[in-house]
Design a protein around this nucleic acid. Structure first.
Lengths: 288, 288
DNA sequence: TTCCATTGAATGGGTGATCCATTTAATAAT
DNA sequence: ATTATTAAATGGATCACCCATTCAATGGAA
């Protein structure tokens, strides 16, 4: 508070908290004219303020992917906070996929391209915390994939179909050579390619997030029991043929039927369906 | 690491980094038998390790919502890291909605119920960073809402319909009294209720995330131009009637038609559609 | 006894100084 | 011209504090 006349502020500038309090109160007052109850303020902490400040610059277009933030020591001084608390904010933004921190001279905090895998983490956390259930996730996946088939039939381009074709060939090879877990990887990629073929990254992101979790269950099931979906590549080819002919009804029916058979396979042994097995540890290929 | 025989470790246990290096290398080696190229390791930092450790406990069910982590000072000592770096990890988890940090004696880090609003943040960041476009978001929203109508017709319960009815009444009141921005708030809530009526929290979360952004645009448009959708409550009533009769085709048609007219309203003045206006600052009601 | 004010300990919030490890550019040596 | 060395900048991490908040325990007043 006060004047802050000293050039390097040798004594503590311990003014952050009271200032924030005032600001929060102002915001509430501006919210609506006559407020009946007024409890929920929940004083802002500096790292929240910092995160928000940076996100604001992002939304305003002042910061764009590729840009570099000032060095930690300098930015901390600019913001009038300690380097430690600034790092808490930067860490949060890094975990959020907004920043990438790079060491060394010419290093720094660089704004990143958005990482759509963040949504996977959200789904995973919601499942871990019991906010959503496996049943809801599976159901949502079926419905969303149905939508994907419609959009893919409408929008898939030649390159998308070729990529799916190549994926099916890899699946066949993995099947022949008995690499069951690699085949699960192929499946995961198949749905990713299918989602991408809709041409809509929002849809693709949603599909990926539900599929990523689902594939962990499949992976765990295959790894523990050794069973595997029969005639997988063949079914994929039929589906791709329907997709290529833009036959929505057929493609939709084929996919739904396949999803149901996978679901039956998974539910066959409820013990292996435990969240813990599927979520707990990190399989080599399924991780970023 | 070594023996760590001293009880309180007065000298620095500066051994963290080299250990992590070794561990990362081991992981890579275990990843596959014969690796052709080996570049991407990207040494793990302690805060990542900590986050992962805690998430692992979550997935394993050792930690559940409501549980409390040890105090920062103690947990830091248990993990053999400094309190500051532990706080970086806790901050990240707090931003992720996994933890809530509470001050005071009997305070601590408490595992939370999952907060589905996290997905909104993801969408917002992806849009800010240019990873997804407004067009993709709008398109996805239309398709997802179409799906929602199907599911709502199938699954909506009496309470859901009553809540929608009550929402429409609030909308009428706001319209009569000319509170245009409150009416936008009602719209946001309408879609939230509609999404909830599917009975599937995954679907609801997805719908909310795309709707939240969309409503920012509507809010900005209404706030700047003062225009507002005509006959809103009336259209809502028609839609709700169709929903109550489980008439999927009619409900779907009504909603789609409404969405299109809103879209026309928004696109009428492209200037007001700027990302910056919609995303930059925080409207009182639209914020957590 | 009951109730309320005081106190003190535990806890998260925050600061500043200091060191380490990595990276890169500038410089020197070959 | 090439290669090795050095120096500076930067993120990574630690330590030692201090502050503000919260709540249980304590003790005095009614």
């Amino acid at each position: 508070m006060s004047t802050k006349s000293s050039p390097r502020a040798p004594q503590r500038p311990r003014t952050a908290s009271p200032n924030r309090r005032e600001r929060a109160t102002d915001l509430r007052a501006a919210g609506s004219a006559a407020v009946p109850t007024f409890k929920p303020i929940h004083t802002r902490r500096t790292f929240e303020e910092i995160c928000e400040r940076i996100r604001e610059q992002l939304a305003l277009g002042v910061l764009k992917p590729g840009d570099k933030l000032p060095a930690e020591r300098e930015l901390a001084q600019q913001l009038g906070v300690s380097r430690n608390v600034l790092r808490e904010a930067l860490r949060s933004l890094e975990m959020a996929g907004v920043l990438r921190l790079q060491k060394g001279v010419k290093g720094g905090a660089f704004i990143q391209q958005g990482d759509t895998r963040r949504m996977n983490e959200v789904m995973r956390d919601m499942l871990s915390l019991g906010t959503i259930s496996v049943r809801e996730l599976s159901e949502a996946r079926v419905h969303v994939l149905d939508l994907v088939v419609q959009l893919a039939c409408a929008n898939a381009r030649r390159g998308d179909l070729d990529a799916l074709e190549a994926n099916i060939e890899r699946t066949e090879l993995a099947t022949k050579e008995g690499r069951l877990l690699d085949r699960v990887e192929c499946s995961r990629e198949f749905y990713k390619l299918l989602a991408a073929s809709t041409g809509n990254k929002v849809i693709a992101m949603i599909v990926d997030s539900v599929t990523e979790i689902h594939m962990r269950f499949v992976y765990a099931k295959v790894a523990s029991s050794g069973v595997a979906m029969a005639r997988l590549a063949e079914k994929r080819r039929q589906f791709l043929a329907a997709l290529s002919e833009r036959n929505v009804a057929l493609a939709s029916r084929l996919l739904r039927s396949h999803l149901e058979s996978v679901q039956r396979m998974l539910e066959q042994d409820p013990g292996a369906m435990s969240l813990h097995v599927a979520l707990a540890d990190v399989q080599p290929g399924l991780r970023r």
